[in-house]
Design a protein around this nucleic acid. Structure first.
Lengths: 229, 229
DNA sequence: ACAAATTTAGACACTCTTGTCTAAATCGTC
DNA sequence: GACGATTTAGACAAGAGTGTCTAAATTTGT
């Protein structure tokens, strides 16, 4: 009935812009109010479109929710892989470089809008959509954690670290650099920049005390030397 | 109008039992459906009482929710302090004793019903009730974390560990022993017993590599000796 | 400027939920 | 067994939200 010529670009132009705007507002409202509490009228108003337009684009509330989660997962994954690409494979100053990596990971992937929203949606609605969040698990942690582990394995192979199990080390790295942000994460807040840096610094120091190249008895000052470099 | 004799025990007997039953079902349903999605009829049915009884006991949905959170916070705190009391102050086998402590903490406080529910409610509704969850923060992490830190300080003072900042060490200890359970926690699941043990074991090993008594050059075997004791 | 498609506002039916009310049934205790 | 208090089932009004429909207004490509 509609597709008269090319089924390719039947949304002319501002069409896609509206779709994006709707998904964005929906993410905000779903996170703030939860799925049940989210109100389509409110989403439409926040997106600057009419309610009918929301239904035209996404069909119903549940389809809209799924679109939101897929969108967030995709963008977050892209961000994480972009950040993993900055992992210090040949560090000049191991402690400083790892702290930098940890801070970038937090600021660009975990504490930013997308990361915060995705985390909250997983926590609040994860049990209601098992297949959707199984997909997230495979595409997210299932692919990013091994990628980080591989980088640590490379550092170990290069003689920078002493690691038995790179997968365990990678998870512990993440646990350590986020150790001081847990309460903030719980309540859905965003830690300040200096809190992120503090947690990362403390976490990396401990990580290196555990996995750093074992300093010989003669050079136990090496760590503090590194710290001030 | 009602209190004819003693205002003390005016709920005769099964009254309090019903109150408990209601709060319990409410916790379950609030966690599963979120505040907005929770249905008083469903809570009443799950508690085995009529809807009117729910209103008789708790007034309205919001008051019921607050009662649930206070209840959970109280019970969780009690459990955590009871577990902290089992902290190994004079360890015979430091690694094994810390692993045991970590496992107890997880099994009895974090992964059990109350812990799981409280965590989820904080995550999902924390932003909607700032004062309620500020109270939790003060009563919960605000009191338990320093208590754990004090125990680690005591271990350091006793010569078992080398720690600069006990508060940081305590947070990192928790981050490490839970490092492998994050994804499960996210999705609201309960890790299996062997997963808890595995994560605790790996976490404590790394913790001791970082903070264990610095083996002098001559006695670098001390740690593995401790481990097998 | 024209024609097609999209968007809009508003009304609408429908369902669901909250919280109240009442009269009957049940419980616990003396 | 009787009494007072609690609990129950059901009906009820009021409100809110979803999803549909329609006709008018607006945007877009040509």
């Amino acid at each position: 009935m509609k597709l008269h010529v090319s089924p390719d670009i039947f949304p002319p132009r501002g069409h896609e812009a509206k779709r994006l705007s709707i998904v964005d507002s929906a993410a905000t409202v779903f996170c703030r109010e939860g799925f049940a509490g989210a109100n389509i009228d409110l989403i439409a108003a926040e997106a600057g479109v009419s309610r009918q337009t929301v239904y035209n684009h996404h069909g119903d509330k549940e389809k809209l929710f799924v679109a939101v989660v897929r969108d967030l997962t995709e963008r977050c994954n892209a961000g994480i892989f972009a950040t993993i690409a900055t992992f210090p494979d040949q560090p000049r100053d191991l402690e400083a470089d790892l702290i930098g990596f940890a801070v970038r990971l937090n600021q660009n992937c975990i504490c930013n809008r997308d990361g915060k929203f995705l985390r909250k949606l997983i926590q609040t609605e994860g049990e209601r959509y098992p297949e959707l969040f199984a997909e997230w698990r495979e595409q997210g942690p299932g692919r990013t954690w091994p990628a980080i582990a591989a980088r640590f394995a490379r550092l170990a192979y290069g003689g920078y670290l002493t690691i038995e199990d790179p997968d365990v080390a990678a998870r512990q790295f993440l646990g350590l650099v986020n150790a001081e942000l847990q309460t903030t994460f719980m309540l859905g807040g965003s830690p300040r920049e200096d809190e992120v840096l503090q947690s990362a610094t403390n976490g990396v120091r401990t990580f290196l005390r555990a996995f750093g190249k074992r300093r010989s008895a003669a050079s136990s000052e090496k760590q503090s030397a590194l710290a001030s470099a």
